[in-house]
Design a protein around this nucleic acid. Structure first.
Lengths: 364, 364
DNA sequence: CTGAAAGCGCTAACAC
DNA sequence: GTGTTAGCGCTTTCAG
């Protein structure tokens, strides 16, 4: 029995065993350069016998790229959307031979800043960032100065020239309003998740992430087109914590002329509405209607199913990875703003007030 | 304006600017060895002026550890449980200064094998693996031979001596059976997600992951204790794909003496039951009852809330990371089997047949 | 077609 | 307290 080397075999061990030089062994393993087929065979066999595996850290050092790989900074992947997005990105990266280093920022700008530094220090080949706020972007500029390719995911940031992949939430929300209107609804509640702001309020916060901006604008546009007046709208902006969303929903529901339908800008808010409605014995799709942004397994499985503005998460992820890798392979690509379409999936959470006009409010 | 170096500054640049040697610069940055406070100051300033950031790949190469760090191989993190687990692990790792490389195996053993190789090649300091099957473990033995610390997450694998963190699903499922029995249920459906098997069947597959084994044994034990006879039990084993679970649920429901309650071994199966019940206008917690393993936001938010066997995911994650890092810092730790307790959270998805005895089946 | 040698950026012995 | 030097494992000129 041969003497066991304490640590893993290196290319030198392989070279020795195959009776060739390091360079030749490396060429044989890498399959490049001019090299005799027979030598390749010889080296490969030696490597197999030794159980040789290339040290990717050493390769990365030498080659100046880690294939560790596009990396993602996810704001909060407990959220059903980022959960799927993460998977899509990881899978897409893998299929291109890249691994993904993941960091969770919990929508915190300081964490985001620090995470980006760490990842750059680790010499990732490029970054996918879900910016936690549109207001701060000096750290993104730093990324670009470092020469690392950068792609923004799900949210635009003004003042930064970078390829950005988002969805058409403006149209999606607008379509939701139209759908509700067509079903006979005339009093709209709008529950807006405004991460990074405190508490809850009817006042629009100064700064919001672009996707939420788009949803707000889509809502307003839809209302304007259909002649839904401000007094028919009840807005509520709300931080995503354990307390405020419930209070916000209660305020929406407890008005003299409560909305017949509530639009929520994400799943977390939708769940709070569901919970509050349940506690009050309000039946969804009958006593109160709901449309939310982002599809999920449970939205489809519930009875009634929740009507949603679905976004193409998997496509978002794979396109993001492709754009990032394109920039890695050939730096200097033109920054693109890619906007993917949304789709309204009508299920049972919107009451049909047209068929039951007695439910329709007479006066607004 | 100074001439811009094309690539990032290195420790050599810092040393030059501070007028010291590389070693001194390194010591100043690393804050180790004997070094004058004034020199440290000088070097730090030079580094800051240059915007110097240490190249972690080079450090990893030199030090033989990457701090890239504990890495996770998650079976399927679209599942609500692994989603939260991933976040818990990433956060715990970060708090210890480690980053996480994530790979998704989709419960596929070939993918798992390949992912492990890739991660070892990348010189991670340790591995957290959610084994996709209990039947195959040669690749895990390979990990151990490589000398990399290994911790198994959520599932035991016989034949491998490694620290394993799981939950007490046996007791959890048993408690679920007791709860249902106490609520007056006497006919039990049991819908078992059996990943890695094909289609659906009433026959128990030969090999299953340990957590599912435990749930099955817990179910049987509970039934045995309470005198629930086999004819009062309807079992269904089912692959988690788009078609079979629905068929399996239908078979459960369409029997002459259908169960009054169905236990599902995970969220995916619970969602299918929810969907099928909805389609049939069966009201959960009234026409059909449900308990599932794993809590989730939607299980709590729905009306009625779903009664669940909750598992302490966050603790699972942080303990797993701690055990892994302990082994990294001091190899040769004794392998432990850590089992965390589960908790039955009773909500509204289990009908109380005791209060409405007219619903109780007379004969079994 | 193959070998010798340099060097990626860093740190840890070892001198002084 | 600081500098010199070697070398982590690999790939890639440059010679031959």
């Amino acid at each position: 029995m041969a003497i066991q080397k304490s640590s893993a075999p290196t290319i030198i061990d392989v070279a020795e065993r195959a009776g060739v030089s390091r360079a030749t062994a490396s060429r044989a393993m890498g399959g490049y350069g001019r090299i005799a087929a027979q030598t390749v065979e010889q080296v490969r066999r030696a490597a197999a016998e030794l159980g040789y595996r290339p040290n990717e850290v050493a390769r990365a050092m030498r080659q100046g790229r880690t294939r560790t790989i596009g990396l993602v900074i996810i704001a909060d992947f407990t959220n059903a959307f980022f959960d799927r997005a993460t998977k899509a990105i990881v899978d897409a990266a893998k299929s291109h031979g890249y691994q993904v280093l993941i960091t969770n920022t919990d929508e915190d700008i300081a964490a985001e800043r620090q995470a980006i530094e760490t990842l750059i220090d680790k010499q990732v080949d490029g970054l996918i960032v879900v910016p936690s706020t549109a207001a701060v972007h000096d750290h993104l500029a730093t990324v670009q100065k470092s020469g690392k390719p950068l792609v923004l995911f799900d949210r635009r940031v003004d003042g930064i020239v970078a390829t950005t992949i988002t969805t058409d939430d403006f149209s999606g929300t607008e379509a939701a309003v139209r759908h509700a209107y067509a079903m006979g609804h005339r009093r709209f509640g709008f529950l807006v998740a405004a991460a990074g702001n405190y508490g809850h309020s009817t006042e629009r916060p100064a700064v919001m992430i672009s996707s939420v901006e788009d949803r707000i604008n889509g809502f307003m546009s839809g209302c304007a087109d259909l002649g839904i007046k401000p007094k028919q709208q009840s807005w509520m902006f709300c931080e995503d914590n354990a307390r405020d969303p419930e209070i916000a929903v209660a305020k929406l529901l407890d008005q003299p002329k409560a909305p017949t339908i509530i639009l929520t800008t994400n799943n977390d808010m939708a769940l709070v509405l569901l919970k509050t409605a349940g506690n009050r014995r309000l039946v969804i799709g009958k006593d109160i209607s709901l449309i939310t942004v982002d599809d999920s397994q449970w939205a489809a499985a519930m009875a009634p199913g929740i009507t949603v503005v679905a976004r193409p998460v998997e496509d978002l992820g794979s396109i993001t990875v492709e754009k990032l890798l394109a920039e890695i392979d050939a730096p200097g690509q033109k920054a693109e703003k890619i906007v993917l379409p949304t789709e309204l999936i009508a299920r049972g959470s919107v009451a049909n007030l047209v068929m039951y006009p007695e439910n329709e409010p007479e006066n607004y």
